[in-house]
Design a protein around this nucleic acid. Structure first.
Lengths: 229, 229
DNA sequence: CGCGAGCTTGACGTTGTTCAACTAGAGTGG
DNA sequence: CCACTCTAGTTGAACAACGTCAAGCTCGCG
């Protein structure tokens, strides 16, 4: 974990939502005090149960957002790409995080004091609305996740996860970055069954597997499997 | 379903959050046009997939909030008591409902145009903050639910549900209003296993069962079961 | 009186987890 | 350069947990 203090937004190549909102509202950066932090794998970006003090924005790298359950058994809810809010589900007056976030490759995040954010969205309603839209999408996909995890068999769930990852990477061929165990946590199944299903799908010619590189050969079939058939 | 149009908030015994916020902001009710609706069991208060046009507030009665899954298999997320928002999870710029709500006893709801609400929370930040606080709590309990449903055995899940209902009714002795099937949907298990566990708990002296009336005799033991022991 | 919805119980089969053993590759230190 | 160790991945077999099917029961209501 390496801090870059006294960071200046004008030097940042990523013109994030917060930056845009400030410019739109009058361009006063004097109270912003952004903090950029570099992290390596397995460091916590935020930790379930700890206090929410800053809005966190993923600048570069990829991260997993997960709930820490019983007996060290986690469930991964989303994979986060650069240019997305991390603290979002906790922006809204939640004292502590209900989930944890860790990078799955080296990453860089930017932290902004939460009081600044509140002040900003009260002044700038377009910003507030944009937060709410993202928030709404998160909730929608959690709902979907609850159904998927509870009502599909493990074949359908892994198919779902693979389609999700392809969508996320914008291609049918991608390096999923996740270990087998993590792919299992994304589908809420055991590591062993994850392996079994990957080889099963491979043998059926639905996907190609090369280490963590996945290629989806028959997307429509995978979709039918995901829909539970 | 029976509409009471041209309803006047000053005649309403329930001084809800929205009412209070309007009074606080200047007391202009002229654009409010609240609509009160009476519903009986099994009518939809709101329906998954349909458009969100109004904020809905539960005035009287009890309702279940559930996700409609595959093969007519639902999962109940919450039981709603009077004086709570129904549309809440969809207030924030979500075009369609991601869940359904139905009364489990005769109920009465009040509907307010969503544009009015938006206008109100932009003017009144205390109201916005109060919405966000409730929103945050909903999300927190969904997170908890995901873990519960995926990582606890059915004994733990039913124990959880019973403790939840006791909390909701504010007493260890309550009429749960739910059928066995619905209690199962609250715990995401089959109706048959729900019945089996109720009699199991009864035989173990942990609860008393009389139709839909439940009495929790040994709360601490039930808590230990819920914590997965 | 008969019908239907809700409830109850037993038997059975499927699904998925867990345990255990084994393999392959990447570091590490002598 | 070779043991060694550690992690990630893989496979098989045994077992436990749940869901499903089927049948019967009870009570309220037409």
């Amino acid at each position: 974990m390496k801090f870059k203090k006294d960071f200046n937004c004008n030097d940042c190549p990523l013109k994030c939502e917060i930056y845009k909102a400030i410019v739109e509202t009058g361009g006063d950066f004097s109270n912003l005090h952004p903090m950029q932090v570099s992290l390596v794998k397995n460091e916590n970006i935020c930790k379930q149960g700890s206090q929410v003090t800053h809005a966190i924005y993923l600048v570069s790298g990829t991260a997993k957002l997960f709930i820490e359950g019983l007996n060290n058994h986690n469930i991964i809810l989303y994979i986060l790409n650069p240019n997305s809010y991390i603290g979002l589900l906790s922006f809204f007056e939640t004292p502590t995080y209900h989930y944890s976030v860790k990078p799955i490759e080296d990453a860089c995040v930017c932290m902004v004091d939460l009081n600044f954010i509140k002040h900003l969205y009260i002044q700038n309603h377009r910003f507030l609305i944009s937060l709410n839209i993202i928030f709404g999408k998160f909730v929608a996909s959690i709902m979907q996740k609850i159904i998927t995890l509870n009502q599909k068999n493990i074949r359908g769930r892994v198919a779902d996860s693979l389609l999700y990852l392809a969508e996320l990477h914008g291609s049918s061929n991608f390096n999923m970055l996740l270990t087998r165990k993590e792919l299992g946590e994304l589908s809420a199944i055991s590591e062993e069954n994850t392996v079994r299903l990957l080889t099963e799908f491979k043998n059926e010619g639905i996907i190609s597997v090369n280490g963590r590189n996945i290629g989806i050969a028959d997307k429509s079939l995978l979709k039918r499997i995901s829909e539970f058939g």
